[in-house]
Design a protein around this nucleic acid. Sequence first.
DNA 1: GCATATTTGTCCGTATGTATA
DNA 2: CTATACATACGGACAAATATG
Lengths: 231, 231
Amino acid sequence: MTTAPSHDWLGSLADDRLSQDRARAERVADKLRDRMLDGELTPGLQLNEKAISDALGISRNTLREAFRLLTHERLLVHEHSRGVFVCEPGVDEVSDIYAARRVIECGAIRRWTDATEEARQGVRDAVAFGVRGAAMDNWLDVGTSNIRFHRAITALAGSLRLNEEVQRLLAELRLAFYVMGNPREFYQDYLPMNRAILALLDADAVAEAEQELLRYFDRAESHLVTRLSGR
Amino acid sequence: MTTAPSHDWLGSLADDRLSQDRARAERVADKLRDRMLDGELTPGLQLNEKAISDALGISRNTLREAFRLLTHERLLVHEHSRGVFVCEPGVDEVSDIYAARRVIECGAIRRWTDATEEARQGVRDAVAFGVRGAAMDNWLDVGTSNIRFHRAITALAGSLRLNEEVQRLLAELRLAFYVMGNPREFYQDYLPMNRAILALLDADAVAEAEQELLRYFDRAESHLVTRLSGR
DNA sequence: GCATATTTGTCCGTATGTATA
DNA sequence: CTATACATACGGACAAATATG
C-alpha cells in the first residue's frame, strides 16, 4: 500500500467551519466522500487520524466514526494497526462490481412497463442531460449523466435498498475510473448506447434494451480491466 | 418506540470473556447480531449504552462503534439523543426488501447454466438440508435451510458484493419474522417450492424456475404483510 | 408546567500494542 | 535493537437532550 505523505487537500476540508450539534460524523464522511469522488483523495492515499481531526477541529473518536461509515461503503480500507487508506480497486473488484451490476440493473430494466411514470421520466432526463453536455463539449457532465442514467435504471425497480446498493457500487467504481486519465475517452462511447437503450424502452422493446445494457456492461468492464491490468 | 426495561439477556452476552486485541467492535457487533437473529433481542427494544458496555466489559466508545455497524446493516435504528433500538420492520420495509430480492435473486437464478458446479451444488445442498430437517420434524433447520437456499441462489451470480447485500436483506427480514410465532406455519409451504425450483433447474428449465421463484416471493411477501398489518 | 435524574453526544488524555525507520 | 510514529481502546469529563415524578 503506497503512502503519500502530502496533506495538501486538508485545507479544502477545513474551509467552512462545522457547526456543533448532530450527525457530525456523517457530515465528515460526506466531506471525505466528496473529496474522493472528486479525485482529490487518490486511491492508495493514507488518511492520518490526527492530521485530519486537527484540520477539521473534531475529535479523533468522531473522525473514526466517519472512517467506519466510509469503510463500510468500501471507499476506505482499514489495515489493522496501520491505518485507513483510500481504496484502490483492482481487476477482481471491478469484475465483481460488474457482475453485481449486471444482475441488478438488468433485473431492474425489465420493470420498465411496471414502473411509475416518474421513474421512467428519470431515465429520459438522465439521457437528455448527457446529450446537452456532449453538445456543449462538457465531458464532466456526460460522466455524471452516465451515473444518473444507471441510477435511474435501477430506480425502475422501486426499491430504496436496491438504489442504495447501486449507489455504493458506482461510488466504488469511481475510484477505479481514476486510472482513466481522460473522461472523454471513457464516456463518449457510452452516451450513444444509453440513447439506444432509451429508444428501445420507449418503443416497449424491453428485452432488446436489456441486451443492449448487457453489451454496455461487457464493453465498459473490458475497457476498465485492460486499463487496470496494464499498470 | 416501545422501551422494554428488561435486561435479562445481558448475562448471555458476557458469558465468554472478550480477548484483547483486534476488531473488538466488530466482535461485539457479531454478538449483538446473533442475539437479534436468535430472537433474544426483540424488535423495538432499546439498547442502553452503559448497561451493555458494563456487561461486556468494554468502553462506551467501542460499543458505539458496534452500534454504528449494526445501524448500517439496518438491524438497529438510531434516534438522536434518544438512543438505539432494535429495528421493527413494517409493511413498507418488507415490501421494499422483497422488491430488491425479486430483482437480485431472479437475476441470479438465470446464471444457473453459467455458474460454477460448486455454486450449483450449494443450491442442492441447501434443499437437501431442508428435506432432512422436515423428515425429523426440525422446523428450525427447515427455516435455516430456506435462508441457505436463497443465499445459494444468489451465489450463482458469483459476486461477493451481491452475496453480502442479500445477506443483509435476509437479516433484516428476520426481524420481521418475529411476528410469525410458529416457524412451521411459515416454512412448511416453502420447502416444496424450493424442491420444485431445484427440480426445474436440474432439468435446465431455468425460465420456469424463475417463474416459480417469483411465485414464492409473492406468497411469502403477502403472507408476511397480512400478519404485519393485522396488529 | 417544573424540577430532577438519567441517558446520550462529544471530546480529551493516556496507556498499550504494533509497524516502520 | 532501539526509537519513533501511529492506531487501539479505556476511563473520565462536561454539556445537552430526554425521561420521570
